[in-house]
Every structure is written in structure tokens, then in C-alpha cells.
Design a binder for these strands. Sequence first.
DNA 1: AAGAACTGAATCGCGATTCAGTCACGAAGG
DNA 2: CCTTCGTGACTGAATCGCGATTCAGTTCTT
Lengths: 221, 221
Amino acid sequence: MTESRFSSSREEPARPKARASRGPRGRGREGDKRERILRAATKVFARKGFYATKVSEVAKAAGVADGTIYLYFENKDDLLVSLFEDRILRLLSTLERALAERDTSEARLRCVIEMQLGLLEGERDLAEVITVNLRQSTRLMKQYAAPKFMLYLDSIARVIAEGQKSGAFRADVSPHLVARTIFGALDGIAMTWALGKAEPGGLSRAATQVADILLSGLLAK
Amino acid sequence: MTESRFSSSREEPARPKARASRGPRGRGREGDKRERILRAATKVFARKGFYATKVSEVAKAAGVADGTIYLYFENKDDLLVSLFEDRILRLLSTLERALAERDTSEARLRCVIEMQLGLLEGERDLAEVITVNLRQSTRLMKQYAAPKFMLYLDSIARVIAEGQKSGAFRADVSPHLVARTIFGALDGIAMTWALGKAEPGGLSRAATQVADILLSGLLAK
DNA sequence: AAGAACTGAATCGCGATTCAGTCACGAAGG
DNA sequence: CCTTCGTGACTGAATCGCGATTCAGTTCTT
């Protein structure tokens, strides 16, 4: 395995090798090459799976040379992790902005659900990479994906906790557990959607129903 | 890439190469060697991740020679898929048996939830393999894991549908969607549990809360 | 002794990564 | 304005290690 970064307590001792902000500073006239590579990687990973994808295939899809990838990413693993981090941070900021505009806890929760499924519906490849490919290795999850992921979960948990404080939601359940429940439910739905037919509009219809169930389960009596 | 079996419509054309029931028929006095290998594989995969694990490591952990693995499994991928199939079928039959003993829909749903989390709590390694490692590749999921997985989802969906027919559950949601929601929620909880502290008893406490939420969301008014 | 189960060292292909060049462009000088 | 450097981006063919798989040989079972 491409070891370099990536190791957890249960494996060899970590030697993190300075998570650098990689890549040539200035950008050529071709626009952001890093972004081009990330986009290509998303497409190819979704189609073939991370491990079955050769770096040279990503390069070809992005229209760059094999070596160029290594100017922007440390190695193949870093490519996957960067992809995830980039996208989840984007989701997070979009979410925070949207949440700020809703006033009731119920609206905020629906917002979370619609947002998570909505993002994926618009980008099926990304959905597949996140729900399936990202879970490549425990090591990768634990070391790199987990922290940003927790940020996202915290965001959801906060919505729940606030709802409880205001009396809108039942208070006898742990906000974090609820957050994980919600995330898991949405992730599972997205996964079966991505792996199956992926009918257009399927996810948004699903979102409404799931929101109905979870809300009536959560609203205070 | 270990191609052999494993290809989906989106990749090269399939050439399934007769999914054989592998392995020497008779078993040595050592007990079931196939089972020994599966158990060892679970442990090692959980610790290092599927792709980072060498076949020789599984062999060593199982106390057999490298070559012996290939008497029981077609290749490394087959090992992972067999693992999943074996375990989910076991879960399925245990579940069906348990369901037969509950009479109300509510009890049956609680049963599903407790069973899925209970199985994993007892076998943390298996939990990690199923929630994380299994999702190695789209190809693998689509071709082999998906069918058995659907069987399991159907089982859950049946519980919901029956509850709806009897009037116990609200009827305005799709049983399959609910099944996916429930599975996803449980899977997500198990994942964060397996990747995190994995406190003993954590899952069963979670089970109760999740069941409470989902049930009050599902019960007819 | 025949056959099955098992072994593990050697093979062999693959693909991530490297790095010696090439290229493009702005700066400096004529 | 043209020429020549210098620098950083980019290229892609060659390397090189790894590890899945094989199979000739060994050991067990009958």
C-alpha cells in the first residue's frame, strides 16, 4: 500500500510527513488544474472504484500528464482524501449559510435533510465516491476523513440540541446519536440510490418522506 | 487488478466464471478450515483494511499456507465477498427465526434494530468489515454484495409493510424507503461506533433510543 | 499405494512514483 | 523590437518494489 501518510494507532506508528498545502501557487491559463484533477478523479473513481483506478487514468481524464498529479497531491490516497475534504467543507459552508435563514427547528432539520440529499442528487459521481469509495480503509477514515466528518455531524447535532432546548424536539435522546441516525439514514438512501437505478428526482422524493418520519419521531408531544 | 469475477455493466463486460462452491469437500480433523480462514480474514481486514492486507497475512493469521487460501476461495476478492455473504445469511436466518416469535409489529421492528446492532456489538471486527471494508469497490458491491443485501432489506421492508397492513404503522411512506432508512441509520451508528471508542454496551443503548425515535415516527396516530 | 489436502518459495505483471527533460513566459539587456 | 536567460509548470517513459497467484513437491488419510 502507498503508506506515506495514513496510519492509525492500531497499525504502525504515525509519521505524518507534514500535510502541506500542495501544488504550484500560480495557476496556468488553463484555470485551476487542481480542481480539474479533482473533478476527473471523482468521475473515474465513481466508475471504477478507487483501487481499481490507475493514477494514469485520472491523469488522462483530467487531460494532464501522470506526473502532474504529483505536483498537486502527495500520492493517490491524498487525492481521495483531498476530494472528500474539499467537498464536505463545501457542503458544510453551504449548509451553515442555509441554516441561518431558517427560523424553526423543524425547518432547519428539513433543511439538513434536503441539503445532504440534494447535493448528492446533483452530483451522482460524488455521491458514489462518498458513500462507497471513501470507505476504502479504516486507516484513511480514522486519520483524515473522520475529523471533517465530525464537523459535519456536529452541525447536525447542534440543530437537534437547539430544537430540544427550545422545546420543539423531545429531549430524551442524545443529539449526537440523532445526528448519526440522520446521517446514516441519508447515507444509506443515497447509497442504494447510487448503486441502483438512480432515478432522477428519486432522492428529493425520498427526502420528504424521511423528513416526515424523523420529524414525527422527534417532535415533542 | 484481480479481475476474474467482478465486473459491472459500467465497466468491462461480465464473464462470471461459474461461481463455484469452492474448497476441498471433506474437511481435515482441524475442523472447518474454510471457517478458520474467514475468521482470520475478518480480524485482519478489520485491523488493516482489505487492500492493505496481504493474502499471506490472512494465511498466517489462520495458520495455513498461502496456497491453501486458494483451495477455498477463488481469489482475494472472493474472500471478502464470501465473508459478507456468509455473515449476512447467518444474520438473516437468525432474524427470521426471531421475528417469528414476536407478534406485534412494534416488537418486530424493535427486534430488527436490536438484532442488527446486537450482532455487530458482539463482533466488532465483523462490524468494521461490513460497515467500512465491504464498500471497497462499486463493482464488488453491485455484483455480489447487493443481491444478498437486498434480501436483508426485503426482510425489513416486509416487517414495515405488514405493520402498515395491520394499521399499526402509518401507511403514507414506502416500506422499502423505510427499510433503507432504518438500515442506514443502524449502519451509520455502527460505523461511528466501530471507528470511535466502541464502548461496550454503547450499541445496545443506542438501539433503544433509535427504536424509540423511529417507532414514534412510524406508529399510526 | 492412490488420492486428496496442504505447503510455501518463485514468478510475473502491474502500476504508483520518479525525474531528466521540455516548454512557456516574463524579465533584462541590447 | 528582438534575443537570451531564468524559473517554474508540466510531461511521460522508465523504474522498482510489491504481493497475488501458481504449482512442483510433501504429507496426510484411506
